[in-house]
Design a protein around this nucleic acid. Structure first.
Length: 478
DNA sequence: TCGCCTTTT
DNA sequence: GAGGGAAAAGGCGAA
């Protein structure tokens, strides 16, 4: 049985709870607190929520609870606890940042911001703060005449989705969106990253093991899980994360992992079949939705199918999808109905799953991570919001379970055996390693891929995309 | 501190 | 009848 003393066995002497990895103090005592639907923010909150004075008392209470929940104890002791060490290692290793290059990129962004701002100043006949959504909203709606909708607090909505609708009619909006994008990149990803490098030029993120109710990790100070990928400047920023001299990055990305898990959990044969045939699953869905053969699917059809595939994972409604695809609600509803008709097992699974949640008061992932459904004792009602949350839970949660399990195996089988290989980052379905640029790379790829693919065999094959590169922004498939 | 917006998976 | 696709972190303006 797990106890406090053995909890940190293997970590360096002097390691203390709130030192490393950040946020993991709570983890060592709190995986199941989280699983009971509570968010754990501090040592004090853990202790007071369990009405105990100290850790020893808490450990005693936990042992009692774990005896009632053997499956959860397995998850805790075989995955979450061993993962503490893995995250500790990742955090202390850090990742090298080319600060000079980032500084330069920042200056380029500055220039682009000034250009965008000058353009806007000519178009705006008022001296407003472009970063203020209140001022921008008021001006666009009342002076320019853009028919903006209101937010729930009665202000004008100026988010990207809202503004894009009127971008053709009011050219000023395009410039505003450009300004917004640049300004976001500049304020979030330049100085704040440069300020966080250590004396060796590396930045150390903090992984929080108990922040996310689905079981995912979160990353903060800096958050390295939302480094931009899409825009030109975004990619330039990402390229400033570089491998040490003589080393390369190797990244391993689970391909369509959540849809594979959906196929496995629901047992939907057509989806399973598609993965077994190694099809483009968005095309598969499109061919079912539009009743055309797989090879005849058009680009437009694939886009719609892709939106629905993701929407299903997120517990989507017809309203949400109509907004996402810019189509009428009734048409969105038809697509969703067609989806469920094409994949009947998915609907059956979800109905059964939600019903079980109502009966038990909790739902579970594949490895037994729990999410409690009701906020109050005796509550028996699942509203639409909770329904969406629950539909997403087994998929996102199972994906998190499998990734965590793989990380533990990788640590034990690879990282502890070879100090030249470092695991640097985890971005939910993606792992980034740093390794000497020699023959070891091929071996690493083989081993890591095998662990990730075989970590928990599903009824569909698991695929991992591997990329390598000297910097994080320019990784190439191999 | 709250609300809005933007970035990722 | 209005309002919902999931999960986060963080910057910044408005109170």
């Amino acid at each position: 049985m797990w106890d406090l003393k053995s909890a940190f066995a293997g970590l360096p002497d002097g390691t203390w709870f709130n030192q490393v990895p950040t946020g993991t103090w709570d983890c060592m005592i709190a995986e199941f607190l989280l699983s009971e639907g509570r968010f754990v923010h501090s040592q004090e909150s853990v202790l007071s929520s369990y009405k105990v004075k100290n850790l020893t008392e808490l450990a005693k209470k936990q042992k009692e609870r774990f005896l009632e929940l053997p499956e959860l104890y397995k998850l805790f002791s075989e995955i979450e606890m061993p993962l503490v060490k893995v995250l500790h290692k990742m955090e202390t290793t850090g990742i090298l940042l080319d600060t000079k290059r980032l500084q330069k990129t920042g200056e380029e962004i500055d220039k682009a911001i000034i250009t965008a701002e000058e353009k806007l100043r000519k178009e705006f006949y008022a001296d407003i703060n472009l970063n203020s959504s209140v001022q921008v909203g008021n001006y666009l709606a009342e002076k320019v005449g853009v028919p903006l909708s209101k937010t729930k607090t009665g202000r004008y909505a100026t988010n990207e989705n809202e503004l894009t609708q009127y971008a053709e009619t009011f050219p000023i909006i395009k410039d505003l969106l450009t300004y917004r994008e640049l300004s976001k990149l500049r304020s979030t990803y330049v100085d704040s990253l440069i300020n966080k490098v250590d004396e060796k030029g590396r930045v150390h993120t903090n992984y929080n093991q108990v922040a996310v109710s689905t079981g995912r990790l979160s990353s903060a100070n800096p958050n390295l899980q939302n480094i931009p990928v899409v825009s030109n400047f975004g990619q330039k920023i990402k390229s400033c994360f570089i491998a040490e001299k003589g080393k390369v990055f190797v990244s391993f990305d689970y391909s369509q992992q959540e849809l594979r898990i959906l196929a496995h959990l629901t047992g939907e044969e057509k989806l399973i079949e598609a993965f077994k045939k190694n099809q483009d699953v968005h095309k598969t869905t499109a061919s079912k939705l539009f009743n055309v053969s797989y090879s005849d699917v058009t680009k437009e059809q694939r886009v719609i199918a892709k939106t629905i595939n993701f929407g299903i994972i997120y517990g989507m409604s017809s309203f949400g999808m109509s907004a996402g695809l810019h189509i009428p609600v009734d048409q969105a509803k038809k697509f969703i109905d067609a989806f469920y008709e094409s994949y009947p097992k998915i609907k059956l699974y979800y109905d059964k799953y939600i019903n079980q949640g109502k009966i038990d008061g909790y739902v579970e992932t594949l490895l037994g991570r729990r999410r409690y459904v009701f906020e109050f004792p005796n509550q028996k009602f699942i509203d639409n919001n909770m329904r969406r949350v629950l539909l997403n839970y087994p998929i996102q949660g199972t994906a998190a379970d499998l990734m965590k399990k793989a990380m533990v195996e990788i640590y034990e089988k690879i990282l502890t055996k070879d100090p030249e290989i470092s695991l640097l980052l985890q971005i939910h379905d993606d792992l980034v390693f740093e390794i000497p640029d020699n023959k070891k790379v091929t071996e690493l790829i083989k081993k890591v891929r095998a662990i990730m693919c075989e970590v928990y065999p599903l009824s569909v094959p698991i695929e991992v995309d591997v990329k390598t590169g000297k910097n994080w922004g320019e990784m190439k498939e191999i």
